[in-house]
Design a protein around this nucleic acid. Sequence first.
DNA 1: TTCGGCATGTAAGTGGTTACATGATTTC
DNA 2: GAAATCATGTAACCACTTACATGCCGAA
Lengths: 194, 194
Amino acid sequence: MLRLAILSLLANSDYSGYDLSKAFDASLTYVWAASQSQIYPELHKLEAKGLIEGVDVPQDGRPDKRLYRITDAGRDTLVEWADELPGTYAIRDRFQLTTINIGRLPPARARELVTGQRALLQQRHEVLAGIAELLESAGHRPGEPWNDQLGWRLTVEAGLRTSAAYVGWCDWALEQLDTSAAHRSRKHLPPIRP
Amino acid sequence: MLRLAILSLLANSDYSGYDLSKAFDASLTYVWAASQSQIYPELHKLEAKGLIEGVDVPQDGRPDKRLYRITDAGRDTLVEWADELPGTYAIRDRFQLTTINIGRLPPARARELVTGQRALLQQRHEVLAGIAELLESAGHRPGEPWNDQLGWRLTVEAGLRTSAAYVGWCDWALEQLDTSAAHRSRKHLPPIRP
DNA sequence: TTCGGCATGTAAGTGGTTACATGATTTC
DNA sequence: GAAATCATGTAACCACTTACATGCCGAA
């Protein structure tokens, strides 16, 4: 699916491999993570298929680069790939595997882990909020007439809502952990009565 | 991370490879998807490491099976693996790659895709709600004293909240698509004035 | 002079998917 | 008689990660 992600970016503007990698880290990571070392080989494959074309751009003061542009065939293929309704929705959330076993850890450590995850998600939410503002100031606001770019705003909103929900869950989970831990300590350390 | 997922299940009860695969499809899929063909080799690896041990159980009327049980070393390793705070949170949401490009599709098709995704997430939410009820009737309710299994309820709640948020997003997205599509048709088909 | 940024890559390894193979039993 | 369920697996392939290699520039 990396190809779909790359074409989605190249459909808006030209990129070098390096710039693509930056663009992934800056925004697309929140939907589809990709590492540098994946991107270069994928660009070669896309060019071999004629979906993008690269031009060598000499630069002075810094290394030359190869700028890629999407072709007409590339745009057609992008639409084809996007136009598939997936029959399943598979997630893999590493942190939830920890959560399942969180009761095997000491309460203090359990708290630490959830707090850490909360920070990650909170930060993600802030970055996405920034992107949403940028998009809005660039004219991508709800209610726009139908156009090619309209999907970006929707995707950012999905990220905002799911990360907000996740942060909310973290807070709820912390409360749960605290009450459960309290029950245990009450059992083990009953209050002293003079 | 599949090992973590498998050990998490085996920590609660014994399973054959086949049963594990079923258990994944029935519940863990919503956190960590795994296919049959992955599970068998992984079980061999875990047994070779001494984290689980298998016993051949002869059966009549159906093929013999090999039941796996977690070892003490396995429980220790499970806790070690669970006790890692991840520094990043990488998602890969295929549908959002479609969403980015949804403005390139005809409005009717765009609607169809979001509606399809909504159905998937709605179903996921219902299955998770069923699991939550099961857990609660089995005594896994919020406020329980600290225990090994307490994480399951938390994980199910995370699934409930994120899928609910996703369904909410789908509804919002459908509204957005409708208003954008309406703007377009108003442009192309201005109202007739006698 | 050392580090970070720009720019492009390779190699080795891990993780995961899809499809297939086998074979008995039960259900439609 | 065909299909689904139980049960275990293999093989080929694709996707992704981590680590490394190269080389030049500018800033601290």
